[in-house]
Amino acid sequence: MRARRRAVACALLTLASTNAALAAASPAACHGTIYLTFDTGSQSQAEFIAGVLRKHAIRATFFLANEKTVRGDWSLDPSWAPFWKRLAAEGHAFGAHTFDHVYWQRDLADGKMVVKPQFGAQAGRKLTWDARQYCDELKLVDARFAELTGRHLDPLFRAPGGHTSPNVLAAARACGYAHVGWAKAGFSGDETPSETYPNAMLLKRALDNLKDGDIFMAHLGIWSRKDPWAPADLEPLIEGLEQKGFCFATIPQHPAYK
Results as ranks from 00 to 15, higher is better:
residue 194 S to G: 10
residue 150 G to T: 07
residue 236 P to I: 07
residue 195 E to Y: 09
residue 35 Y to N: 13
residue 136 D to M: 09
residue 239 E to P: 06
residue 107 D to I: 04
residue 99 F to I: 01
residue 172 A to V: 08
residue 186 G to H: 03
residue 134 Y to W: 14
residue 163 H to G: 04
residue 94 F to I: 01
residue 195 E to M: 09
residue 35 Y to E: 14
residue 243 Q to Y: 04
residue 123 A to F: 10
residue 172 A to Q: 12
residue 4 R to N: 12
residue 101 H to Q: 10
residue 78 P to L: 02
residue 232 A to S: 14
residue 252 P to D: 11
residue 189 G to Y: 00
residue 79 S to G: 08
residue 73 D to G: 14
residue 249 A to L: 01
residue 243 Q to N: 15
residue 5 R to F: 13
residue 124 G to C: 06
residue 137 E to M: 01
residue 157 F to E: 09
residue 216 F to Q: 08
residue 32 G to Q: 06
residue 83 F to L: 04
residue 83 F to E: 03
residue 194 S to D: 12
residue 65 A to L: 01
residue 167 N to A: 15
residue 20 A to S: 14
residue 43 Q to D: 07
residue 178 A to N: 05
residue 49 I to Q: 06
residue 59 R to C: 09
residue 151 R to N: 12
residue 231 P to D: 10
residue 28 A to D: 15
residue 67 E to W: 02
residue 146 A to K: 13
residue 10 C to F: 15
residue 54 R to N: 08
residue 79 S to N: 05
residue 182 W to T: 14
residue 136 D to H: 11
residue 103 Y to V: 00
residue 127 L to I: 03
residue 78 P to A: 06
residue 9 A to W: 09
residue 70 V to K: 03
residue 148 L to R: 02
residue 81 A to V: 05
residue 125 R to N: 10
residue 111 G to L: 08
residue 112 K to A: 12
residue 111 G to T: 05
residue 45 Q to H: 12
residue 172 A to M: 11
residue 19 N to F: 15
residue 193 P to L: 06
residue 75 S to K: 02
residue 56 H to Y: 13
residue 244 K to L: 08
residue 48 F to C: 04
residue 41 G to I: 02
residue 63 F to Q: 05
residue 224 S to E: 15
residue 189 G to I: 03
